[in-house]
Design a protein around this nucleic acid. Structure first.
Lengths: 110, 110
DNA sequence: AATATATACATAATTTTCTTATGTATAAGA
DNA sequence: TCTTATACATAAGAAAATTATGTATATATT
């Protein structure tokens, strides 16, 4: 991502969550979806995204399927069974993190 | 931090926020305060904390004052004027980030 | 027809920000 | 006496980004 306030470590969670909702997506689609959902707040850069996808695939959390659309390459990624389980963990971690940060930063509301 | 689910980039915000509330604190005190406020969820390691403090000082966001208590060294840090302004920015960024992540991860509630 | 923008992938160099390991030193508790 | 707590620090390495490139096709603009 560029310009944005993204904390390192959350990209994986974002990818997994999107794939959990959308069954299969390709890289470019993910960048566009994030831009759309965050109203331009978050821009995922290719330099971050593609290595992240490759890593998740290598770890067995994602499966790939190559397709050719309009004479252009697309790599569709989808969650494996392990990936689906890991998505649950990552989302719990994120919720936990947000709670913890709010306790630190806004102790009155905790 | 160790063991924890902390996303990289939030340590600076935590330090600034604590100093904003407590006027002046020393490093070890910060580690203990974070542990206390997060009920042990977050443990700031010295390897992360001290370099972060030095960096904030070098950037002019913190001032240091060395003291000797019980024959042991303490370095009290406090926000400079610039540091106070930057604290506001960092807290806004964090709030924004949390909002953005919730929009991504829990679009129904957004 | 030429050029810019969008689509779609990828990697390399560098930077930021941690973790882990190590080191020094004093005080207090078992 | 030995461990734990207090209090600082840095170095090596890893993780995860950013920034800069590179390739290639399709579409929109001038």
């Amino acid at each position: 991502m560029s310009n944005s306030k993204l904390y390192k470590g959350s990209l994986t969670t974002i990818i997994l969550k999107l794939l959990n909702e959308n069954d299969k997506m390709y890289g470019y689609e993910i960048t566009q979806k994030v831009k759309e959902l965050t109203k331009g707040e978050l821009k995922i850069t290719e330099g971050a995204l593609y290595p992240a996808l490759h890593k998740l695939e290598a770890e067995g959390l994602l499966d790939v399927e190559v397709a050719k659309v309009d004479n252009r390459l697309r790599k569709y990624y989808k969650l494996t069974e392990t990936g689906t389980k890991e998505t649950v963990n990552k989302l719990e971690e994120l919720a936990e993190y947000i709670k913890t940060m709010q306790a630190l930063v806004n102790p009155k509301l905790a």
